[in-house]
């Protein structure tokens, strides 16, 4: 059983976060990323999140994103990256034949 660790992102996410990268690399912990204090995500920030999730998957570490303010969660929705949506607990988009009206 891995230990559970939570890290809170504060302010603008514009690049990688070393502390999280190191924690993941240690392979010891499952990680919860708390976005409640995150005010902005840049393209580089998004790219890092995706890449970090990829590393986590190969290390079989669980990463989940919590407490996203709606503007941040909307960035995830529009960016439409499966791994990020999954970590956010967002269901994959429905592919049902919904009726247009």
């Amino acid at each position: 059983m891995k230990e559970k660790q939570t890290r809170r992102l504060i302010g603008e996410l514009r690049s990688s976060v070393d502390e999280i990268d190191k924690l993941l690399a240690s392979g010891k912990a499952d990680l919860t990323v708390d976005f409640s204090a995150c005010t902005f995500i840049s393209v580089e920030g998004l790219e890092w999140l995706e890449e970090m999730l990829m590393r986590a998957a190969s290390l079989q570490a669980n990463v989940s994103f919590v407490n996203m303010p709606p503007p941040i969660y909307k960035v995830f929705k529009v960016a439409h990256i499966d791994s990020i949506l999954q970590a956010s607990g967002s269901p994959p988009p429905a592919s049902t034949g919904a009726a247009a009206c």
Binding site: I41, V43, P71, V75, A79
Partner: peptide, 9 residues
């Protein structure tokens, strides 16, 4: 697409 997502902010 990533740029469009970020632009929403």
């Amino acid at each position: 697409r990533l740029a469009a997502a970020v632009f929403t902010q």
